[in-house]
């Protein structure tokens, strides 16, 4: 599979989001790839509300089976969730379970006015009724489950997509 250029996708995603941004809009990235992406989008879109981040380790539905992540990084929501327009940001949308966990966690901080989801790539394979309002690329066919697609960041801060065969 030819991997798409992450930098180009980020530019396209920012362009798609721009008309829907208000003074009330805040981004919340999901660790780890989603946080890197949200940092970029935050700068590109020039948002006034500070950037948030979510580590869904404590809300995952596979906790009983897989246990805790070795190094949970915690969540930081440095703005008032009550009444905010929040865009959850993740690099890849797959089963939808991470999004559900992030929504659950977000609502423990308060009641947002609206929540959207922005992702770079929708790889198919959904197991929950979740869809992204903003998506830079939807793969024509679902990716095989044994493959893992994720965002990576090098020392210079450049972002690339990486395919891992499990």
């Amino acid at each position: 599979m030819q991997l798409p250029d992450a930098e180009q996708l980020i530019a396209n995603l920012a362009a798609a989001m721009r008309p829907h941004i208000t003074v009330n809009t805040a981004l919340v990235g999901i660790h780890t790839g989603g946080v890197w992406l949200a940092e970029r989008l935050h700068a590109l879109l020039g948002l006034s509300l500070p950037l948030g981040s979510i580590d869904v380790s404590f809300y995952r539905d596979d906790y009983a089976a897989k246990g805790l992540h070795q190094q949970p990084r915690g969540s930081k929501i440095p703005f008032d969730v009550e009444g905010a327009h929040i865009v959850i940001v993740d690099d890849v949308l797959y089963t939808g379970r991470t999004t559900r966990a992030a929504l659950n966690e977000l609502f423990d901080y308060g009641r947002p006015a609206q929540v959207d989801l922005a992702v770079l790539i929708d790889r198919g394979g959904r197991e929950l009724p979740v869809s992204a309002r903003f998506c830079a690329l939807t793969l024509p066919e679902p990716m095989p489950a044994r493959q893992n697609l994720q965002l990576e960041r090098d020392d210079s801060g450049a972002l690339t997509m990486r395919l891992i065969h499990a």
Partner: peptide
């Protein structure tokens, strides 16, 4: 470490 930040949550 992340559990010390619970205080800022509504729930």
């Amino acid at each position: 470490a992340p559990f010390t930040e619970m205080a800022e949550r509504e729930v």
